[in-house]
Simulated scan of single mutants.
Amino acid sequence: MFEHLVSFKFKEKLSASKEKELLDALYSLPSQIPGIIQLTTGSNETTETGNIQGYTLGLRVTFTDQQALLDYGPHPAHQSFVSLLDGLIDNVIVIDYPIV
Rank of each mutant, 00 (worst) to 15 (best):
Q32K: 14
E12S: 15
D65M: 06
A16K: 15
P98Y: 00
H78Q: 09
I93P: 01
V94H: 01
Y27K: 13
G50I: 01
E45N: 06
A25P: 06
V6F: 06
L59Y: 03
N44H: 01
K18E: 10
D65G: 09
D86F: 00
S28L: 12
D71W: 00
T49Q: 04
A68K: 08
D96F: 01
D71C: 03
K13T: 14
M1D: 06
T64Q: 12
G42H: 01
A68H: 05
Y97S: 09
Q38S: 15
V6L: 14
I37R: 08
G58K: 03
A77V: 05
H4P: 11
S15Y: 03
A16V: 09
S43C: 03
D90L: 08
S83E: 15
L69S: 04
S28H: 05
E19N: 14
G54L: 03
S17N: 13
A25M: 08
I33E: 11
L23R: 13
G54A: 02
L26D: 14
K11P: 03
S31C: 05
V92E: 04
G35R: 06
S80I: 02
V100K: 10
D86S: 14
I33K: 01
S15M: 09
L70K: 10
S7A: 14
S83P: 02
I95M: 10
V6Y: 06
L26V: 09
T62H: 12
K18D: 13
Y72K: 10
L59I: 13
V6I: 14
L57W: 02
D65Q: 06
Y97W: 07
L59H: 07
H78S: 08
V100A: 14
V61Y: 02
L39H: 01
V6A: 14
T47M: 11
I52N: 12
L57D: 07
K11G: 05
I36N: 02
T56D: 13
I52Y: 05
D65R: 04
L23N: 07
D24Q: 10
I33C: 09
L14N: 10
S80L: 06
S43Y: 01
S31W: 00
D96P: 05
F81G: 10
D96S: 04
A77D: 13
V94N: 01
L85Y: 00
P74S: 12
G50P: 01
G73M: 13
I93N: 09
V94L: 11
L59G: 05
I37Q: 12
I95F: 12
S83V: 02
G54S: 03
E48Q: 04
L59T: 05
S17W: 00
Q53N: 14
I95D: 00
V94T: 08
A16Q: 13
V92Q: 08
S80E: 15
G87L: 11
G58F: 04
K20V: 01
L22A: 04
H75Q: 09
I99L: 14
T47E: 13
F81I: 08
V61M: 12
S28I: 02
Q66C: 01
